[in-house]
Design a protein around this nucleic acid. Structure first.
Length: 467
RNA sequence: GGCCAGGUGGCAGAGUGGUCAUGCAGCGGCCUGCAAAGCCGUCUACGCCGGUUCGAUCCCGACCCUGGCCUCCA
């Protein structure tokens, strides 16, 4: 049975969705003001894996992931670029969708946008207003009154006194309490604005996710996810607003993924140490990227570096090498796979322990390689199983030769084939020194020639960093 | 300052009170014309100091160090 580490309780809990047949999953998506970087990729890939695993485990899943398409950064960026807010967000959403597809991430079942849910947000704020937990400051902004929500801080394990004692909270005199947060921002000149009972303005960030998740999912939501940096204050505020408005529990299991780091630092736009998904995909293939992201547990930090990505590529090559040359089995035999399948599930059931699950895949690879000559049909059985298990990670979806020969390079396949034929002639003539020269020539071009039992030698590309 | 997470072998990265993670790299062997791939074997570990225990990397306590959040953030 699946156990999930729930951020709210900080412990493992058996996963029992409200409706055993349909998991309600909401993940905080991205703010569309710029290209997404590898930090966003981690979130996308991790929750893609979560959804795939839940579905493979027999659950129906309704997966909602939002788009924040109105906020300060967007307005500022649009102004800088001399572009309309709508034009900017439309462009960025298209690019984001391109990134998603390029990463092999299945789209969510619905992708609500903030500007498409202004009415729901206003309505939600009205409910908070009616319950006396919202008020309007002198500047026209509407705030949530934090001390009216007794359990404020429960998600992130903070207490109001501790937060107030913190030195980093700026004092804003229009708030009754420095910890109160904005529900509705009064419009400034030349900003996009929508009408509301409190005047023209736009929604605060936190209210978006409360309104959008409730618009698309029944309460309580089973799993609400996002990056660790959203734990406080974003998710804390979501809980406060949602539960204060509805009077019922908002979310049952909170899942937060760890950061992508560069050296010792978190990868972030503000740090300037980021690499966009687009750029990463010009340097590494998507399965290598996914492997790298899934080779660490989702709650641990993962470090972006050339060495780590090259290592991921090599590891993945071992999986593909095992698959190379395996056909379809004569008849499926699930019993042959049972031991690995159960170890794999046990790993995944343990809070999505993908590194442990990957280790099972490698053990399976060893077994495939061991039996492939003596018992080819069993090897095929196991190979099919390997692919099936890897599907949860979005890995091993390519033809092995395609993967192994891919990765780019300056030389054409035709040239390679021609050289290999030439070398084969020399080998048959016993001119090994000449043949080896060609092998070296190919190797210098990043091509590894492998003589097999067949007459025709196989080849594959080594990534440039291999040497 | 407050709160949270973590420190595992050359690197990456799981896990466990007492045999084995796994991948990459290294070393030896088999295989190969030579290689590659593969198989077999093998070496480098659990931050530091105490405590509990027959036994601790794993439990408890102190200490050191790192990261994150407390401000926009996946």
């Amino acid at each position: 049975m699946l156990q999930i580490f729930n951020t709210r309780t900080r412990r493992m809990e058996p996963f029992e969705p409200t409706d055993p047949k349909a998991v309600r999953l909401y993940v905080c998506g991205v703010t569309v003001y710029d290209d997404c970087h590898l930090g966003h990729a981690r979130m996308l890939v991790i929750f893609d894996m979560v959804v795939r695993y839940l579905r493979q485990s027999g659950y129906g899943v309704r997966y909602i992931r939002n788009l924040t398409d109105i906020d300060d950064k967007i307005i500022r960026r649009a102004a800088e670029l001399g572009e309309t807010v709508e034009g900017l967000t439309r462009r960025m959403i298209d690019r984001f969708h391109g990134d998603q597809e390029a990463l092999g991430v299945a789209p969510p079942d619905a992708e609500p946008s903030a500007t498409g849910h202004i009415g729901a947000m206003v309505h939600l704020i009205e409910r908070l207003w009616d319950r006396g937990v919202a008020y309007q400051g002198e500047n026209g902004d509407v705030y949530f009154r934090v001390d009216r929500f007794p359990t404020y801080g429960c998600l992130s394990g903070r207490r109001l006194e501790e937060l107030r004692a913190g030195s980093r909270i700026g004092i804003e005199e229009t708030k009754a309490d420095p910890l109160d947060f904005v529900l509705w921002k009064a419009a400034k000149p030349n900003e996009p604005a929508w009408p509301s009972p409190w005047g023209h303005g736009r929604p605060g960030w936190h209210i978006e996710c409360s309104a959008m998740s409730m618009a698309h999912l029944d309460l309580p939501i089973d799993i609400h996810g996002g990056g660790q940096d959203l734990e406080f204050p974003h998710h804390e505020n979501e809980v406060a607003q949602s539960e204060a408005a509805t009077g019922e529990p908002f979310v049952r299991y909170w899942i937060h993924n760890g950061f992508v780091q560069v050296g010792q630092d978190k990868m972030a736009k503000s740090q300037g140490n980021f690499m966009t998904i687009r750029e990463a995909l010009t340097r590494y293939d998507r399965e290598t990227l996914r492997f790298w992201l899934l080779a660490s547990h989702y709650r641990s930090p993962v470090t972006f570096s050339e060495e780590n990505l090259v290592q991921a590529r090599f590891s993945l090559e071992r999986l593909y090498l095992a698959l190379r040359g395996l056909g379809e089995p004569d008849s499926p035999d699930s019993a042959a796979l049972a031991p690995w399948q159960s170890r794999f599930s046990a790993a995944m059931d343990d809070d999505f322990n993908t590194p442990d699950a990957l280790a099972v895949l490698f053990d399976l690879v060893r077994e495939i390689n061991r039996v492939r000559t003596a018992d080819p049909d069993r090897a095929c059985q196991l190979g099919t199983g390997l692919r099936e298990m890897a599907r949860v990670f979005g890995l091993l979806e390519l033809d092995p030769e395609t993967f192994l020969r891919g990765g780019g390079g300056e030389v054409t396949d035709e040239w390679i084939e021609e050289r290999i034929h030439e070398r084969q002639r020399l080998r048959e003539a016993g001119q090994y020194a000449e043949a080896d020269r060609i092998r070296q020539q190919l190797l210098d071009a990043g091509i590894l020639v492998e003589d097999g039992p067949e007459k025709q030698a196989r080849w594959r590309r080594r990534s440039p960093a291999a040497s």
